[in-house]
Design a protein around this nucleic acid. Structure first.
Length: 479
RNA sequence: GGCGCUAUCGUCUAGGGGUUAGGACGUGAGAUUCUCAAUCUCAAAACCCGGGUUCGAUUCCCGGUAGCGCUACCA
């Protein structure tokens, strides 16, 4: 049996470092075992999934060099590798579960379910479906179908006993079936939920080892049950610890840069990124810390993964990156990397358009655009002193903007501009005054290239990081 | 709240019934270099708590505590 693993990202946002982290282990395990590594897009959430995100995720994983043997872009014998294109497959499988009595139609409205939960919570009950539609007679179901009442399909779950599972890293885990909800398998829109799609695809795609984040442990019983219902052989399950913020919570963009695009823009090398991600969970007995992807593949051992949730430490990542730059790049290669990083046509063109009107001689360009080629800016509290805008207002405005950044669907100058106009109204300020502190935070100076354009070029994560930094700087300042 | 997972320096980790508990990042001090960076040396810094088992537990077992996760027609 050849080992087959997969990474199955959901295209609902920026490419996440956690995705790269899980992908790395799947990649190493597959390569080490001489097996295949597959990329599958889990875009069953029609409301949140979008093609830009999918494209960005693929680009980031390619940037890192984690190449996949089968996937939406390269094809393969088990395609399509995009779940939104596999609707018919899921519907057929659900029909089978329905026929065999392992699943049932549920006509309950989301309002009723919300009320149900509201009643369960204070009563100390586990929130979950109460099985009302399980009691529907055949005739009642047929009538509801004739009336075109919308429904979902849920899986049946044993009422008693415990589900025993084996995790490759943690050994035996037991979860009582009474803790498992009658999970929706097929949503009202005809799309499957993760639980169904994941099991069906993993089986059909011949996945032998499911290596995924720890957050899935509690729903594994549902998956195991589905394998049993279908009569399929189960893969090996292996749950990886979750990456953490410095405060130990699950790594999130609110508190930390999580986008691979950010790290790319900051000028981290893919080699260092991958190396560091690997270091988060295991280490070499000899203590060497600098490892190439090939070396990691060669020495990789799932059993050596430590289980504590590791804090993502940018300082150590930077140190490692420095080693890669110093020790592995010739002057020429280094120059090429710099060029590829930001001194390339694609990045420079919009900057050229922005600066042409603002220079007299070409050497004005350096100071004018330094912030486009920097990470965090060395701003001080004094830089934010402004005759018309009290520091306290800036601070509040930064905090509000930071909140709204995430909600912004599309990161372009129109959207950014609209957001700032809205915030400006909210603060009942003049746009010119309101924006000045943002210029300082984002570009390092109150006079610079146009803010919205500059922000679009810099990207969401870098702007977020700079605003966060400005907020930090202002924390100790008195207005 | 319920359920689950986890627990070694501030951080990432090694180790494991008897060790001066090892390495790395970061921090501090020094050396070196025209400055800086890099490099080198040194230093401070950890086995969550309580019970068992044992001649002996940081290590094994149990309990607690804490952290995290899950508890959606999101993944």
């Amino acid at each position: 049996m050849t080992v087959r693993t997969r990474i199955a990202p959901s295209p609902t946002g920026d490419p996440h470092v956690g995705t790269a982290y899980v992908a790395l282990f799947n990649y190493c395990f597959a390569r080490k075992s001489g097996g295949q590594f597959i990329l599958r897009i889990e875009d069953t959430d029609m409301a949140r999934s979008n093609p830009q995100s999918q494209e960005a995720i693929l680009n980031s994983l390619r940037w890192l060099g984690l190449d996949w043997d089968e996937g939406p872009d390269v094809g393969g014998p088990h395609g399509p590798y995009q779940q939104s294109l596999r609707g018919e497959i899921y519907r057929q499988h659900v029909a089978r579960l329905l026929e065999e009595g392992h699943a049932f139609r549920c006509f309950c409205t989301s309002e009723r379910l919300a009320e149900l939960r509201k009643a369960q919570q204070p009563a100390g009950l586990r929130p979950g479906y109460d099985g009302r539609c399980l009691g529907l007679s055949q005739a009642e179901v047929e009538q509801l179908l004739r009336d075109n009442v919308p429904y979902v399909i849920r899986m049946k779950v044993p009422e008693q006993g415990v589900c025993e599972m084996t995790d490759l890293l943690r050994g035996r885990i037991e979860i009582g079936w009474d803790m498992v909800d009658m999970q929706v398998l097929l949503k009202q829109d005809g799309m499957p939920t993760y639980h169904l799609a994941n099991v069906v695809d993993d089986h059909l795609m011949g996945i032998t080892h499911v290596i995924r984040g720890e957050e899935w442990i509690n729903s594994t019983p549902k998956h195991l049950l589905l394998y049993d219902y279908f009569g399929w052989e189960k893969p090996v399950f292996c749950h990886l610890p979750l990456l953490r913020n410095p405060d130990k919570s699950k790594l999130s963009k609110r508190k930390n840069p999580t986008s691979l695009v950010y790290y790319q823009r900051m000028g981290f090398l893919p080699e260092a990124m991958l190396n560091y991600l690997g270091l988060m969970a295991w280490s070499m007995p000899e203590g060497e810390e600098k490892l190439s992807l090939a070396e990691m593949v060669e020495k990789f051992d799932l059993a050596h993964i430590s289980l504590g949730g590791p804090v993502f430490d940018i300082k150590k990542l930077s140190w490692l990156n420095g080693r890669w730059v110093r020790e592995d790049l010739s002057d020429e290669q280094y120059a090429e990397r710099v060029q590829k990083w930001a001194l390339n046509r694609e990045y420079l063109m919009p900057i050229a358009a922005l600066t042409k009107q603002r220079v007299s001689i070409l050497s004005d360009l350096g100071p004018l655009t330094a912030f486009f080629f920097s990470g965090e800016l060395p701003v001080k509290a004094a830089d934010f002193e402004d005759k018309k805008v009290p520091v306290e207002v800036s601070r509040k405005a930064f905090a509000r903007a930071l909140e709204e950044f995430d909600a912004l669907g599309c990161w372009d100058k129109q959207a950014i501009g609209a957001l700032f106009k809205q915030l400006c109204d909210e603060f009942q300020s003049k746009l010119r005054d309101f924006l000045r502190p943002f210029y300082v935070a984002i570009t390092g100076s109150p006079t610079s290239t146009p803010l919205f354009d500059s922000m679009e070029i810099l990207g969401r994560d870098l702007c977020r990081a700079r605003l966060r930094r400005a907020l930090e700087v202002l924390k100790g300042a008195n207005s």
